[in-house]
Amino acid sequence: MPTELEELVGFIAHPNPQIRAVAIENLVPYSVSQPSIFKTEGFTPIKHLKFLVKDHPKIAEHALTILINLTSDQKVLEFVATDDKFLDVVLSYVTEPTEPNANLLAMLLANMVKWDGLKSVATKKQPAPEKLQSDELVLNQLLDLFVKGADGSYNKHADFDYLAYVFADLSKHAEIRQFFAAQQDYDSVVPLNKIKVFTEHKSGIRRKGVASTIKNVAFDLPSHPALLDEDQINILPYVLLPIIGNEVYDEEEMNDMLPDLQLLPPDKQRDSDPNIIQTHVETLTILTTTREGRDYMRKIQVYPVIRETHLRVDDEGVREACDRIVQVLMADEAEPGAEEAAEGDDDDQVVEV
Results as ranks from 00 to 15, higher is better:
P336D: 13
V147G: 06
Y296G: 00
I235R: 04
Y238K: 07
L70K: 10
P225M: 08
S212G: 14
A13V: 06
F43T: 06
L227S: 02
I195E: 11
L104Y: 13
E4C: 02
Q327P: 00
I66K: 05
G10Q: 09
N234R: 04
F167K: 03
V353G: 12
P225H: 09
K156H: 12
A168T: 03
E230W: 04
T65C: 01
R294Q: 01
T65L: 06
L67H: 04
L137Y: 10
F167A: 05
P265G: 04
V28R: 11
T289W: 15
V113G: 10
I68S: 02
V190S: 06
D271L: 05
E333Y: 10
Q178N: 08
S212P: 00
L87D: 09
D345E: 08
I205Y: 06
L170R: 02
S72D: 15
L77G: 02
H62T: 02
I66Y: 07
D151K: 15
G117T: 01
L118G: 00
E96G: 01
N16E: 12
Q141I: 02
L104N: 15
G152A: 09
K39G: 00
V328L: 04
D323T: 10
Y165I: 06
I59N: 03
P191M: 09
L27A: 10
V166Q: 05
A211G: 14
G42M: 05
T95I: 14
A150Q: 14
W115N: 11
D83I: 04
I12Q: 02
L64A: 03
L5F: 02
L105N: 07
L240I: 13
N101E: 11
N234M: 04
K39P: 00
I300M: 03
G149N: 03
D260W: 06
E6G: 03
K148F: 11
V190M: 06
L163A: 12
M107G: 13
A211I: 06
G344D: 04
T285K: 13
R324S: 08
T82Q: 12
D187R: 09
S212R: 15
V32H: 12
